[in-house]
């Protein structure tokens, strides 16, 4: 394995710095929400984590499609790396949402479309990992991963739609004016800055983690190959 590229080191430090700034913005700089109090501050990273989760799974589906079309291994590497990060952030998204819901909706869990869809999405990608673990042949593993990544990703909006037909109580903070959703609030200008900065920060974290994870995957594949040749010789 070659040394860590300079660009990646710089990116990692930059991301860390940006993350600290984002923490400052959401925890201290942004004003306290007038009704919900401090727990509303969870919202910034909650939405950002959800965004990264969805982005990661989209990347997996696209990388899988390109892999099937071209058969180049690097696209499969991107797909796996992205799934793992997506699982981590979707998990954060669900748990923080639940923590927020406890004081605001007075329950840890409701069967709201977004909650359920996020959870099913998480299960789909855990299944994706299990599918890959069950297959030894690397080429087949990559193909099956790509197929399931695409099938799973397509089913997510349908799942959301199907549960959406029930009434939702999840607040839509961005681009909605439904005042009846419990826990809805209007963002002040400062809040909006913190919100968009969080989105930016998490996207940056995603890219940095993806890069590191890709290098890990490369090393894993190299070692796997060398082990096989060592065993066969």
């Amino acid at each position: 394995m070659e040394r860590t590229p300079k660009a990646l080191i710089v990116l990692t430090w930059l991301t860390s710095a940006v993350f600290v700034v984002a923490l400052y913005l959401v925890l201290i700089w942004a004003p306290q929400e007038a009704i919900m109090g401090d727990v509303q501050r969870v919202f910034y990273f909650h939405v950002a984590a959800g965004w990264v989760g969805a982005l990661a799974f989209l990347v997996t589906a696209i990388a899988g499609g390109i892999y099937l079309a071209r058969g180049e291994q690097r696209w499969d590497r991107i797909a796996v790396a992205s799934v793992e990060i997506g699982i981590i952030f979707t998990f954060i998204n669900i748990v923080t949402g639940s923590i927020w819901a406890r004081p605001i909706w007075n329950t840890w869990w409701t069967w709201d479309p977004r909650l359920v869809t996020a959870t099913i999405m998480l299960l789909i990608y855990i299944a994706y990992i299990m599918l890959r673990q069950g297959i030894e042949d690397p080429d087949r593993r990559a193909r099956f991963g790509a197929v399931y990544g695409i099938v799973g990703f397509i089913s997510v909006p349908l799942t959301f739609l199907s549960i959406r037909i029930f009434r939702t109580i999840h607040p839509i903070v961005v681009g909605s004016s439904d005042p009846t959703a419990a826990g809805a609030f209007n963002m002040t200008a400062d809040m909006r800055v913190a919100f968009f900065f969080s989105l930016f920060t998490f996207t940056l974290i995603y890219i940095t983690l993806l890069w590191h994870r890709l290098r890990l995957q490369q090393l894993m594949e190299k070692i796997e190959e060398r082990k096989l040749t060592a065993l066969s010789s």
């Binding site: 925890l27 306290q32 929400e33 007038a34 009704i35 919900m36 109090g37 401090d38 727990v39 509303q40 501050r41 969870v42 990273f45 909650h46 984590a49 990060i85 981590i88 998990f91 954060i92 748990v95 923080t96 923590i99 927020w100 406890r102 004081p103 974290i205 983690l209």
Partner: peptide, 25 residues
Amino acid sequence: QVGPADTLNYMIAGYTVILGTIGLY
């Protein structure tokens, strides 16, 4: 209610989960 609810503990719990999960990963 008058004024914001005291939900600081939930906020701390939320950020512990976020930082903890990313850190563990």
